[in-house]
Design a protein around this nucleic acid. Structure first.
Lengths: 336, 336
DNA sequence: GGGCGTACCGAAAACGTTTTCCGGAACGTA
DNA sequence: TACGTTCCGGAAAACGTTTTCGGTACGCCC
């Protein structure tokens, strides 16, 4: 169990060469004869040698690690991003430190310090909600990418989802399926995402010369309960709706629930589309829920790629937008 | 941006001492006068010095990192465990490498190799489902803890949830609330967890001299759809049930859905209890769902503590069990 | 046979720390 | 004055690599 790992020195000895040549042989440097390389490789294999990356990092000034600083681990947003990032960095090259700040600022500072101490080659910061967040600062020794929640500082590079486009996509889909009386029930109005999605939805309606059904955008909070409550009010105000665009899948579940109670069939009478493509909610709904996917894994992969490019090179700035994607299920069949 | 980090040498120079004393001063070693220590501390502060942990790790033979090897990142089980582990290791002491093997064996090997190369001080392996999984082997240079999914090798140390106890807890709660005709709808019979929960439930029923309602344990799969389907069949078979113990919150949601359709009130006519305490499903159900929480954060913390103790010391073996916890919400009010 | 180029290998420095060990200063005591 | 003690600080080795640089052996050409 507590055997000391084998070092290059031992490999070299077994192969009958110096440490220097052993190193060169293993790293594919040209100044070593094929036969000696063979001997070294064989020795390394035999001893099950794996190089100490701490030592490598010390000398090459590159640790081969990145930090992923999140504030939303239990939330649904960090995880896909994390997965995307993880598989964009090949595991042989780069490993990722995961740190959850729990939304606490001093904890974030703490983690940041620890990560810098570990000489990470770069950082990805994943916010809990898609609104601008304070920058970590301009004078960090490593490149930083802000994902999901953009940085307030335009000099930073941020990667975000296209919520306006997502809203537009949802409504466009409903329109193409023959819906005309479309309502929008969504979450907390202080969220930029809620505003953006509504903006996109309204824009698409306007193009078609349609009014929003239900007189208003129903802002509330991101819960199933609000989806239910809003739908009840909505139906009183405007019983003739033929589609609801919900700002999240949770809300959509609430909407579905009340529509069922009111004996309104989905999708033949009312279509429902959600947002997030949170599988467990969307795919298992009755009927399965059409929804907008934010392509978060792709966002994570992109973050990793940008970071990778920035390491060594120099980092861009501004905000880059990742488009959303429509997921069609049964809750939005064509009308008629 | 790409400034080289400040080293101990620079701190020492600024403080007018040798590197050795600077190190001692910063690490609280006693052989340094208070006034010099003060000078060093001040210099470090001024330069915003943070020690290179790679170098520290190289010499102390301890990297201050652990690897968390999971197969279930998108699943709901790894995350709480991860969070528990993360906060049990103070962030100043230990950072965690997160690796998701995606259920692929060779990818797991790959990650393992990379982590060992990084000289992690220990490993936590989190399985995707709570059944025994192959051991990583006995001859690893670092201690390993298996969490959630135990290792097949009894020489390893595994930490698992007490599913039998959880099943018992659920049924006990229903019985205490006056229920007598209790049915059990659960997931895939090939899951040990499904068997264990059923075992616990049946044991508690037997103690009370009760039979399981619905003639059988309804095994199926872990989906909402199965919850719906099973409940329909169940009601045909035995319309007089007064409680359903669902093997997961997802299943419970399906159960609730059909009970509503059948105009059976929850909880006044039928009580429903779930399993997992997956907040998004349980807390937002109509009515909010009582459920069994597996204390996964605690399991994660425990894993971290055990690992911490094992580093340097020696590791125990066998399987340690973490008890479940009842979460009471409105779906299981007392009868009558 | 001398000069030269090429191919291969090793000695040693370097990365940034920690830790051991030694030496000098200051001081008290006989 | 001689000596032992205590306190403080520094030189240097070590951790496990990579990389530079110089050296040796050999073949080739005139």
């Amino acid at each position: 169990m507590t055997i000391r790992p084998v070092t290059l020195r031992e490999v070299a000895k077994l192969a009958g060469v110096s440490i220097a040549t052993a190193s060169k042989a293993l790293n594919g440097q040209p100044q070593v004869r094929a036969s000696t390389r063979e001997r070294v490789l064989h020795a390394a294999e035999q001893l099950n040698f794996s190089p100490n990356t701490l030592a490598q990092g010390l000398i090459t000034q590159r640790s081969g690690t990145v930090g992923l600083l999140t504030s939303d681990l239990e939330g649904r947003f960090s995880i896909p991003i994390l997965m995307g990032a993880e598989d964009a960095f090949g595991s042989d090259q780069t490993s990722v430190f995961l740190c959850d700040a729990r939304g606490d600022n001093v904890r974030e500072k703490h983690h940041l310090r620890a990560l810098l101490s570990r000489r990470v080659d770069g950082l990805i910061v994943v916010g809990a909600r898609p609104d601008a967040r304070p920058s970590l600062g301009r004078d960090l020794p490593v490149p930083v990418i802000y994902a999901y929640a953009p940085s307030e500082d335009p000099a930073d590079l941020s990667l975000v989802t296209d919520n306006v486009g997502g809203g537009r996509l949802a409504v466009d889909h409903l329109i193409r399926h023959g819906r005309r009386r479309i309502a929008h029930v969504t979450g907390d109005a202080t969220y930029g995402a809620a505003q953006d999605r509504a903006t996109g939805a309204l824009a698409r309606l306007a193009e078609e010369g349609l009014e929003l059904a239900g007189d208003q955008v129903w802002f509330g909070n991101w819960s199933e309960a609000w989806g239910r409550g809003a739908t009840r009010m909505l139906l009183q105000r405007d019983p003739g709706i033929d589609a609801v665009f919900a700002g999240s899948d949770e809300i959509a579940r609430g909407v579905l629930d009340v529509l069922h109670q009111e004996k309104l069939d989905v999708p033949s009478q009312v279509a429902v589309i959600g947002f997030d493509n949170w599988n467990i909610l969307a795919a298992n709904a009755r009927p399965p829920l059409s929804t907008i996917d934010m392509n978060l894994e792709q966002l994570g992969r992109l973050a990793a790629q940008r970071l990778f490019a920035a390491i060594g090179g120099t980092l861009g700035s501004g905000t880059e937008t990742v488009p959303c994607r429509l997921i069609t299920r049964e809750s939005t069949a064509p009308l008629g």
